[in-house]
Structure formats: C-alpha cells, structure tokens
Amino acid sequence: MDITQRTALVVVDVQKGFEDPFWGRRNNPDADGNIAALIEEWQAAGRPVVFVRHDSTEEWSPLRPGTEGNEFKPYVEDRRGKGSGPEVLISKLVNSAFYGTPDLDGWFKEAGVEQFVLAGIQTNMCVETTARMGGNLGYGVIVPLDATHTFDLKGPFDWTQSADELTRATAVSLHGGGFAQVTSTEELLRAASDGGSPDSGTEPGEAGPAGG
C-alpha cells in the first residue's frame, strides 16, 4: 500500500442526519474517531481532501437541505479548510460521489490524483458505490473498513442483514472483486506516515475490471 502526496482522502456523507433513529441500528461505533484521525493525517500532510455531502431530494430524508441533518458532524465541519493541500466540497443527490457537483473525476484529474481513500457513511451504499465507480474509472481505491459504518437493512422475501453482515459483504465484494483494496485505519495511517513526497514516482494500486 503506497500512499503518495497525491493520494486523496474522500470523506463521504458524515452528516448529522445519520444520527437520526430513522436509520435503525448502526455498527462500528469507532468509525467517527477513525474518520477524524484520517482527516487530521491527510490535512497535516497537505494531501488532497474531498468532503462529500448528500443533499437528499426526498421529503422524508433526515439529510435533506435546509435541515440540521444535512450538516456535517462537528468533527468534520470543524476541520474543513484547515489543511494546506487541495480541498473541495462535493454535493450529490445519488449514491456515487462521481455524480456530484463539482465533477469529482475532473477535480481529481486537475489535482493529479490517481489514487484515493474512501471513508464515511454508509459502508454498503455510498461508500461502496463510489468505490466501484472509482475502480471502473481506473483509480486505485483504498477503503479502511473501520472508518465506515452502516445500518441493519431489510430486503426482499423478508430477508434481513445486520450492519456487520453488510459490511463484510461489501469488503468481500470490493476487495475480492478487484474494485478496491480493503484495509484498516491503523494500517493506512502507518502507510500514510511513510508516504511519498510530491515527486514520488510510486504508481497507485490497480483496481481490476470486475463485473458489476
């Protein structure tokens, strides 16, 4: 795992609305602390940081604009603009951060980003969707699994999966399918602290052309 000066951190939908009981039982209470540690590391190193906000158009959503739930959690909002490296806010209406405003792919290309780290909410939805699309677009994608969390979910046929089960399924699909390298926050921070300089010639990890 090679972390260069141009490896971006993408912080997905860490918004107050995800604290609403509407979502049900969440997993991984350590996620917020791990996300905060990643933001701090990336900003201290002057690496690119992307903050993604979900601006839901659904009237029932705790994430809709104009409500407190649309706001970033304080530990994220308080860090915005504090790094010395490039930073951008992406607003999106769907799962993938690549379908947002401004255009994330274009911003990456302008900043020379070929590899990015994904952290945030929800593991099996916006994080996974963005990782899959990033892999398909040819980026090296790294997902520190313990810097994400999700919620229990009910599907068809009265099937249900716990948040932990969904997290494991995402990890297997992304890592086993070649979309992303799944790791831990501890391993990632260790690699980041040893990361390359702006002139580093290290190539990012490759994401394979796995089927959808």
Rank of each mutant, 00 (worst) to 15 (best):
G85M: 04
G85Q: 08
G85P: 02
P86H: 11
P86V: 09
E87M: 02
E87D: 08
E87C: 00
L89V: 12
S91N: 10
S91H: 14
K92L: 07
L93Q: 15
V94P: 01
V94W: 05
V94S: 11
N95A: 15
N95E: 14
A97I: 05
A97S: 15
F98S: 07
F98D: 02
Y99P: 00
Y99M: 13
T101E: 14
T101F: 13
T101M: 14
P102M: 03
D103P: 03
D105M: 03
G106E: 14
G106F: 02
W107S: 06
W107I: 05
F108I: 08
K109W: 00
E110R: 15
E110A: 14
A111L: 01
G112A: 13
G112S: 13
G112Q: 13
G112H: 14
V113L: 07
E114Y: 13
F116N: 06
V117D: 01
V117G: 07
L118M: 06
L118E: 01
A119F: 01
A119T: 15
A119Y: 04
I121S: 00
I121L: 03
Q122D: 10
Q122W: 05
Q122Y: 02
T123Q: 04
N124R: 10
M125W: 04
C126Y: 07
V127M: 01
V127T: 01
V127I: 11
T130M: 00
R132Q: 07
M133Q: 14
M133P: 01
G134I: 09
G134V: 06
N136T: 11
L137M: 13
G138C: 00
G138R: 09
G140D: 06
V141E: 09
V143H: 01
V143M: 05
V143K: 02
V143C: 02
V143Y: 04
P144L: 02
P144M: 01
L145M: 14
L145R: 09
L145F: 06
A147M: 02
T148P: 00
T148F: 01
L153I: 05
K154E: 14
K154G: 09
K154Q: 11
K154M: 09
G155Q: 08
P156V: 06
D158R: 10
D158A: 10
D158F: 03
T160Q: 12
T160Y: 00
Q161V: 01
Q161W: 12
S162H: 08
A163T: 05
A163Y: 06
D164F: 09
E165P: 02
L166T: 03
L166R: 15
R168V: 11
L174E: 03
L174S: 00
H175M: 02
H175W: 08
H175A: 14
G176A: 02
